[in-house]
């Protein structure tokens, strides 16, 4: 059981940072698996799951991009309706706060990504509920 590494990239609204990031990743043949932008009035954070997060981090940093590697949890929510709600309820009961989450389809299956304020406790809760936690190998090319 483990967390996976997500890229968090600081971008300015209306700036070219996003295009620069996409070009850098594409040039390095790094595949974007899922991404989401959260923004405020002034700036945004572009969150990316990709095939090689550490390599991507190094490339982006060397090119002057404000980037961080963030630990997130990714759980499989395919085939079992209600599993996502169960997971979130269980986390909430255990006093774990979800800072943000997003979901996507990966090879036809649903994946829910979340960042919590207590990832160790979150992982224990998820294990007790027999929810499948995905690791980085699941997203390799």
């Amino acid at each position: 059981m483990t967390t996976i590494k997500q890229l968090s990239i600081f971008i300015e609204n209306k700036s070219g940072t996003l295009i620069k990031v996409l070009n850098l990743l594409s040039d390095a043949k790094i595949q974007i698996i899922a991404s989401t932008i959260a923004d405020t009035q002034d700036y945004g954070i572009y969150r990316v799951l990709c095939s090689a997060p550490r390599e991507a981090f190094t490339i982006l940093k060397e090119n002057g991009i404000n980037v961080q590697l963030t630990d997130v949890l990714a759980i499989a929510i395919e085939d079992e309706p209600g599993k996502a709600a169960t997971a979130i309820n269980a986390l909430s009961d255990a006093g774990v706060n979800i800072l943000y989450m997003y979901s996507f389809l990966w090879q036809g299956k649903g994946v829910l990504v979340m960042r919590t304020d207590k990832s160790d406790e979150a992982m224990q809760v998820i294990a007790r509920k027999s929810i499948i936690l995905l690791d980085e190998d699941n997203f390799k090319n």
């Binding site: 968090s8 959260a38 405020t40 954070i45 404000n66 961080q68």
Partner: peptide, 8 residues
Amino acid sequence: EELFTDDF
């Protein structure tokens, strides 16, 4: 200088 968090 550094993105030290991804928490708004």
